[in-house]
Amino acid sequence: MSLLEIFHLLEYLPLLIEMRSSPWIFPMIATFHLFGLVIIGGAVIVGDLQLLNYKATLQLGSLIAHDMERLMTLGLVIMVITGVPLFMCFATKYYYLTPFWVKLLSLILVVIFTFTIRRNALKKHRENPTIIKMVAVTSISLWTSVAVSGRLIGFP
């Protein structure tokens, strides 16, 4: 079974047909998806800018980075839980959309990066500003890619 056939199968599950026929379920789930993105946005901006030592942020070292990671995880959970039905609703359409694949790839990369390299760097390389700044820039770039490509999905 090809990937496209799997996407087609997902899109035509009875629950998804029901969801598409409702004028309000998709917009409601999309709204909660945006809530997740905003929560992540706050955590990334505050958490990573303070790693860049940006004067407007809190500059409390790894202490706040840990709490921001918790907030980011909450946003991520909301995004994934809402993102799966949003994807399944129009799965075959998304199959042909480059921004969808860019978003998916960016999301996978940023999740792996956040919970491995970033977390490790905050523990072991806290005293090395170059590494910490590179980590912060990578994190901001990947999350920006998720947000921008996500926005572009709506405009094929």
Partner: peptide, 24 residues
């Protein structure tokens, strides 16, 4: 099409900064 799309993207990115930090 592209100008509007750029504006919308900037709007959403700024939204995550503004409301994301306001949330904290």
């Amino acid at each position: 099409h592209y100008m509007y799309l750029i504006l919308l993207t900037v709007h959403v990115l700024a939204l995550t900064v503004c409301i994301g930090t306001a949330l904290i």
